[in-house]
Amino acid sequence: MPTQSNLASSTAQVRAYAPTADLNVSSPPSQREKARPHAAASQRDLRTEPGPIRFLIIALAVIFLTVFVVLPLVVVFASAFSRGITAYFAALSEPEALSAIRLTLLIAAISVSLNLIFGVIAAWAISKFDFAGKTFLITLIDLPFSVSPVISGLVFVLLFGAQGFFGTWLQAHNIHILFAVPGIALATIFVTFPFVARSLIPLMQEQGTQEEEAAISLGASGLQTFFRVTLPNIKWGLLYGVLLCNARAMGEFGAVSVVSGHIRGETNTMPLLVEILYNEYQFVASFAIASLLAMLALITLIVKTILERRLDEGQIVSDD
């Protein structure tokens, strides 16, 4: 949601237009005031609350976010380092931990690259062409977002499980999907599918098809047009989608938990290992793995903020 930074960039302007206390409430806004940017006007007496209420609202917001969001994050790191830094690194270098990290990286690599390719194609199809069933296609793309992760896992169990539709065939050919890497990858692809497509569709719709049409009329081939014209235009949006897709792929728990079978050292991803260690009261080890995932989340957020700023700048440039 690249919406905040234009607000932030106008903060300086807001300060410059410090509220004037002698403003007459009953007089209509003058011409000069109308000419100001919106955000600049927000500090005026007319559009704000009395000091105590303002303080109360800020205090409520800050306390709520601190208790419900900041504290859990702090707990992760505090618990991970509660027995000191050696115990932390010892927990991370356990063979089980290493195999979980390896599996998580593998699954993320598979699902991000596949969703990257198909997300771009889906967004391209939806934003540059008109066809019947387009709304249906968009709904289909959004679907994994609104389905419970457990159900996302369940559908693959029903397809590939021993009692599933393809179960007997798979067993006859000795192909392992469920309780193995392919199943985990499939479930992860399912839950992360919307990210790339969703972050590209609005961007590509806004850019329209003019540049592509120009390229093609100048003799560029379809692929050339895509790599030389479309791709450079969407690169920040694409990175944004990949970033979110990756974060979810590495952190997915519900869907993966249903299809993985929890085979130690083989089909446990990092989130699953967090659960197992926690249930075995190995809190330091559990939170050590959790702290890696939390760091991933924090890095994702920081990069996301930078990318949102880039996206906003890109929009401002294309507006001119």
């Binding site: 976010l65 900041v70 707990v75 992760v76 967090v274 926690y278 989340a297 994702t300």
Partner: peptide, 25 residues
């Protein structure tokens, strides 16, 4: 601006991590 960014943490934090953290808390 920090608190603005913090709002996104529940989106970004893997659910299992959130689960064990809230339980511990």
């Amino acid at each position: 601006r920090l608190f603005d960014a913090i709002v996104d943490i529940p989106f970004a934090l893997p659910t299992a991590v959130a689960g064990v953290a809230l339980t511990q808390l």
